[in-house]
Amino acid sequence: MKSQFLINPNITFLNHGSFGACPKPIFEELHRFQFELESDPVDFIQRKQPHYLKTARESLAEFVGCNAKDLFFTTNPTFAINVIMRSIKLNEGDEILSTNHEYGAMDRTWNFYCKKSGAKYIRQEISLPIVSKEQIIEEFWKGYNKNTKVVFLNQMSSATALIFPVKEICDKAKELGLITIIDGAHVPGHIDLNLTDLNPDFYTGTLHKWMLAPKGSSFLYVKKERQDSIDPLVVSWGYESLAPSESRFLDYHEYQGTNDHSAFLCTPKVIEFLEQNNWKEKSKACKQIVFANYQRFCDLLQTQPIAPITEEFLGQMASIPVQTSKPAELKDLLYDQYKIQIPVMPLNGNVYLRYSINAYNTQEDLEVLYKALEDIIKTTDLIEA
């Protein structure tokens, strides 16, 4: 599959998880829409784009298992969470129960909100190594009390690459009358997702990561009974529209003036590419490579896996604990000297080397990483092993 992607062949690219990688046919579709836009901007934006957006939204909704009128496109999950944050009404002392495995931008969003509102953001500790799903659930709910009003957590952690049992947590949160907000940035196109079955109040995910869409393509799902409470992050022509559609929710959030929505419009082509290339089977093969190498890298770095090496906790990414006091220098060295693109991620006093495997990767890419780490251990003091 390497020939289908634009990635520099001189780089060992093991960082799909950060920003994804777009195949050539989808990238060409992006340019086709941009050319059509520029050839007649007025006709495209005023007449064609609403139809294209509707088609794209319908194809995405079918893919993620929800009604097409219950989601809209956003540029990224951080934008989506900011939409929710700006609309949610909490009082001083109310609590948002989260974990200490969340994405840094999300932590910052909720910290900002809490400073303004007087609410509290609780980063409940989920201890490592994980031994079972039940352990995560038990530790998470230790953070619950009478002040808890919102549950916010990632379905897959960025730094630790762990899959969290969000279905079980959402179900219990509903029993407790809590609002559920799920960050599924790494989920669509990566692990199974059916929003109707999961049943959160809010859910955001990306298309530009594991679905292979162009950069800046994500979505926010809002359960129907919550939609009237969500204000647009940017007030524009869709607010009190002169030509309202059948959905005020979509008017508020989908039409915000002049913008290039070409990345969103590629969604039908994205899904077609995944289906034509039997991506579920390719994803399964990638996971097997991830699983087969995890313990081997831990042995090299003299650390231990942070969870059982199974599909219950891992997808196409794995985070290897690495003993280093200089994560930024290690990342730069791996790229500058060894031409390996891979994140080195600090979290909660630990550091993780996270490799991602997609269909353009092979076992040889991990051999390049293994040899580089062997060399770094022998020739520098960056890794304590």
Rank of each mutant, 00 (worst) to 15 (best):
S245C: 03
A307Q: 10
K215V: 15
K287Y: 12
V322M: 06
V322K: 01
Q316T: 13
C298K: 00
Y255K: 02
W210I: 08
D231L: 15
A328P: 06
K284L: 15
P244M: 05
L301P: 02
L301K: 01
I306G: 00
S319T: 09
I230C: 03
Q323F: 14
S217F: 01
Q323I: 14
F273R: 00
S262Y: 06
H253P: 07
F264G: 01
Q276F: 04
V222R: 00
H253D: 11
V234P: 02
A243S: 13
Y294P: 08
Q288C: 09
P214A: 00
Y252D: 13
P244I: 00
F297D: 02
H208L: 09
R248C: 12
Y252W: 15
D336N: 13
P214S: 00
S283W: 11
E311P: 13
L250E: 02
K223V: 06
Y252A: 06
P232W: 07
S283R: 10
Q276E: 14
S319F: 10
S319H: 08
A318S: 11
L300P: 06
K326V: 13
V290R: 05
L333H: 07
P232E: 05
G216N: 01
R296A: 11
Y294M: 01
E329F: 12
F291R: 02
D336S: 13
I271W: 03
E272H: 10
E311W: 07
G257Y: 02
H261A: 12
P305F: 10
A292V: 11
L250C: 04
V270G: 02
V270N: 00
L300T: 05
P232H: 03
K331Y: 09
S325T: 13
